[in-house]
Computed example of a mutant assay.
Amino acid sequence: MQLTRGKMLGALATTAVAGSLAGAWIGLPGGEQARAAAGSGADEVVVAHADDALPSVTGTDWVTHADQVAVVRPTAEKEIPASAEEKEAGEGYIGRSATLSLERVLWSRAGASAAPESVTLDVAGWTFKGEERHKFAVHDAPRLEQGHTYIVALAHEDDGSWSLLGSGGVLPYDAGTVGNGESEGVVHTVAKADKANRPLSVAARAGAQSDKSLEEQAQGRSAEALVSLLNSAKPEPGAR
């Protein structure tokens, strides 16, 4: 899923934003508003819900729609300037692209195109009003920031490009632990699960077919535990 300017502005303009912390309301084009949901002052993060083109939350979603799953590290990013209309209005959205280096491929769909060494994707950027800007994030999804590690589900598009499967297709993975690291622009620390590197039980692997999120099932564990969940999940027949 490419987080294009249109998708970002759509998420900002049409969605109620999660969060209850006191903070400034950010003016948006067309008079709509979103609330800063984390941090304070310049550190606030504007968090909005966005619709994904494909489901990306469960193990079934990943093995049905993803082509490659890999551990990645953002190695470069580039700011995408606001439009002329937004600059004139003095408020709007500043985009961002990030280059992700693939450190290790964890899972591949049978017959999928080979994973690239790196991908450059449009990711969440910033909102701005006047001289003030705030990080923008999609609800319950990482922004993909440098200095952190992630597990991502990638889909190979018909035009040959690669995209994120969806907002649920990116998991924090700092220090080799699922759920540990940056999400929504905030760094989270999760406890490492007991025997995190051991194979999951039969009962746990059976949960891969449930509607629980993949992150919830693998949280606190290693990439190997997540792979065992993917290997136990069954793709939806005919979905591709």
Rank of each mutant, 00 (worst) to 15 (best):
G90W: 11
I94K: 05
L106K: 12
T99F: 10
W107A: 01
L100A: 08
A114E: 15
G92D: 07
A98M: 15
R96H: 07
S113W: 03
R109N: 12
A82D: 15
W107V: 04
S97V: 11
S108C: 07
I80Q: 12
E103Q: 14
A112L: 07
G95Y: 05
E117G: 14
V119E: 00
A114I: 02
A114Y: 04
I80C: 02
R104M: 04
P116K: 13
E91R: 15
S97N: 03
G111Y: 03
L106C: 07
G90T: 10
S101P: 15
G111C: 03
T120W: 07
E117H: 10
G95P: 04
A98C: 13
I80M: 12
G92N: 09
S108K: 12
D122M: 13
S118L: 07
S97R: 12
S113G: 05
G92S: 12
S118Q: 15
R104G: 03
L106D: 03
V105P: 00
S101L: 09
S97T: 15
S101M: 09
S97Q: 14
S118H: 14
D122P: 00
S101G: 14
E85Y: 07
E117F: 05
I94F: 08
S118V: 05
S101Y: 03
I80G: 02
A84M: 11
G92I: 00
V119I: 09
E117N: 13
E88D: 13
W107H: 06
T120F: 00
V119N: 01
G92Y: 03
Y93Q: 06
A110E: 14
A89W: 06
E88T: 15
S97A: 13
W107N: 06
L100M: 12
E86V: 10
G90P: 02
S83E: 12
I94N: 00
S101V: 11
S113L: 10
L102Y: 01
G111S: 01
G92M: 11
Y93K: 01
G90N: 06
S83Q: 10
S108A: 15
A112P: 15
R109D: 15
A115H: 07
V105K: 01
E117A: 13
A115T: 08
